[in-house]
């Protein structure tokens, strides 16, 4: 658009203008922090237990899964306290599926604001993941407390040196979650059906991942295919880092990392395409 050179911003059907997206996102860092603060305050104001709710939920589900899958179905691994084994699985999976759902429904959940004011739309999934990180941190702290408690009472577990990679592992989960969620966000704006489908998808996915069982129960001949599920090797590595038991599958881990990054790039592209006109179809 040579003739429009005298203007800073030129909006055309293909391009909504503006400076490069990363710098624009940076300009809105205050907004992200304030939105994060709002989420935290709004979630827990006028609740008696406050942020404790973030803790109770994974503990309760870890107890239930430990009872159902560990106690009744006998899927618990040897040597590791059942409760801890399931809790770390639940916490990691909760973070992953939360990131996925949050990004997939970002346009629906915030349509009121998004239809009124412009800001780089990717602020929304970023803020969403950030606020999930906060509750993740609380949950991990609780997990650590239980862990220490179990060690003191004589459980034969110790962390592996790869525990230092834990933040990286968790970021890896978020990358996959946001990537897949962003791709799905294109559909949720158009078809409300997708919202329900995503619910089924995530629960189905969780059974394909080593959340409620140990990877050791997967038959050898399926393992090669099984580990292509990008979440499986990451969860597996997280468990290994925490308990030093099981196996490390670095080659599958790196495949998962590559897949995750590709998904994130694809998701970002889809997201940017969707956000241009989603307000017309939502």
């Amino acid at each position: 658009m040579g003739k429009n050179k005298e203007f800073d911003i030129v909006i055309t059907p293909e391009n909504r203008g503006g400076s490069s997206v990363i710098s624009e996102l940076f300009r809105y860092k205050d907004m992200m922090l304030l939105m994060l603060r709002r989420d935290i305050i709004a979630n827990y104001k006028q609740t008696i237990l406050g942020p404790t709710w973030a803790v109770i939920q994974p503990i309760v589900s870890a107890i239930i899964t430990a009872f159902v899958f560990g106690g009744l179905a006998g899927l618990s691994p040897s040597g590791i306290p059942t409760f801890l084994f399931y809790m770390i699985g639940q916490v990691s999976w909760g973070f992953f599926s939360g990131s996925l759902n949050g990004s997939a429904n970002v346009f629906l959940n915030h349509s009121g604001l998004l239809s009124k004011v412009y800001f780089p739309r990717f602020v929304m999934p970023i803020t969403d993941v950030m606020s999930r990180c906060i509750s993740l941190l609380i949950q991990l702290a609780i997990f650590a407390a239980f862990y220490i408690g179990f060690v003191i009472s004589g459980a034969a577990i110790r962390p592996h040196w790869t525990i230092v990679l834990l933040p990286f592992y968790l970021a890896h989960l978020a990358v996959i979650g946001v990537g897949v969620g962003s791709i799905l966000s294109a559909f949720t704006t158009k078809y409300r059906d997708t919202v329900f489908l995503i619910g089924y998808l995530t629960s189905f996915w969780s059974y394909l991942s080593p959340i409620v069982y140990d990877i050791g129960i997967v038959p050898e001949r399926f393992l090669k295919i099984y580990l292509l599920n990008p979440v499986a090797p990451v969860i597996n590595h997280i468990r290994y880092a925490v308990f030093s038991q099981g196996m490390l599958t670095w080659n599958y881990y790196f495949i998962s990392l590559a897949v995750g990054i590709l998904l994130l790039i694809a998701g970002y592209k889809v997201f940017n395409k969707t956000e241009r006109t989603f307000i017309d179809t939502i």
Binding site: I11, P13, L114
Partner: peptide, 9 residues
Amino acid sequence: RITAPTEGS
């Protein structure tokens, strides 16, 4: 910039 035009600039 809430939504994009179909034609024009």
